[in-house]
């Protein structure tokens, strides 16, 4: 199942709707990076709420996506990792170093606001 990419202002939301094959994950990576380029987005949220398992390939791909997007000048936040998923990831040593995380979509967007220009303006207020 391909994950659709939604545009929300300056941000992109990669909304995972069901379990993803490795090919789907790579497609998500390519599509996200090219869309960030086209839309000149400043942040990306990848929502994994529905996933009840995150294997090593998925974790590595999420990390790669995050690093690639940083090179493109934008921020990435992974949101919606469930408690059970977090526990098993930690036990397997998959801690997606370097990618920011947040509880859910709302918190993820707030984090992006804080990290990109909008947050700076807010702090200046």
């Amino acid at each position: 199942m391909r994950a659709p990419i939604l545009k929300q202002g300056k941000y992109l939301i990669g909304s995972i709707q069901g379990s993803l094959s490795d090919a789907d994950l790579l497609a998500l990576r390519d599509e996200l990076t090219s869309t960030v380029r086209e839309q000149r987005s400043s942040g990306v949220v990848i929502d994994v709420t529905v996933l009840d398992v995150l294997d090593s390939f998925a974790a590595r791909t999420l990390r790669t996506i995050s690093q690639m997007i940083r090179l493109l000048g934008a921020e990435t936040v992974i949101v919606g990792i469930q408690p059970e998923v977090a526990v098993s990831m930690v036990q397997l040593g998959l801690t997606i170093e370097g990618a920011a995380t947040a509880l859910d979509l709302e918190e993820g967007l707030a984090l992006l606001d804080a990290r990109t220009g909008r947050g700076a303006r807010r702090h200046a207020r």
Partner: peptide, 12 residues
Amino acid sequence: VQTVEAARLMGA
């Protein structure tokens, strides 16, 4: 360490 990492994965 694992607990702290797991919490981080959930954005805390």
